[in-house]
Amino acid sequence: MAISETTRAQMREVLVDYPRKRSALMPLLHLAQADEGYISQDSIVVVSEMVELTEAEVTAVSSFYTMYLKRESGRVRVGVCINSLCAVLGGDEIWDSLVDHCGVGNNQTTDDGAVTLERIECQAACTHAPVMTANWEFLDDMTVEKAKQVVDDLRAGQAVQSTRGPVVRTFADAGRTIAGVDDGLTAEGEIRDDRMLAGLRLAQANGDAGRSAEAERQGAVNVKGR
């Protein structure tokens, strides 16, 4: 593979957003990885020319961040949060069962090339623990059974709906989104779940609702704190 002309054009577009070229290094690496599946030698050469750095300087950066991969992964990277809270709430069991189920370990890919398992750190979704991700889209409130199902569906090539996000897409597409390319999926995904709305619903039920700035200004509710 090589970095495509389309990707190069996207890279050039990203470059103009930044006051200094070097600042575009990370989005450029995300884009390169979308094309190549990992940070290939080719990516490093292309990106280093674009941002006018040495290849060593680019390698220094690409090797620092965990999302930039050293080797190609399967079609979907399936992450299981194993930080303390998720681990305790079931992440460890989920991980063990997936390892068993897929027959691969951390950063390894199932033999059909479909799924790469990865132990991931806290995803800022602890209210929805145990948490998994598929190509970085949230899979909240997981159980062992749900986790296996997700992996089976992914391996079978079936669409998997993320929670609080769109249908899980390809690794390459996810990379482009992260690099800032508009994928038209903003409206996807239902985020209004019990966890997100826990406080709001309670407030509404208690009559505490509407204590928004706007509501207060309108005098709809006039309860001050304390």
Binding site: I44, S48, L53, T54, E55, A56, E57, A60, S63, F64
Partner: peptide, 19 residues
């Protein structure tokens, strides 16, 4: 700048670009 610190944390190491 042909040598750089690569990787991070306890794996941090001095190195060069591949080629």
């Amino acid at each position: 700048p042909f040598i750089e610190l690569l990787e991070r944390g306890s794996q941090q190491q001095v190195g060069i670009a591949e080629d």
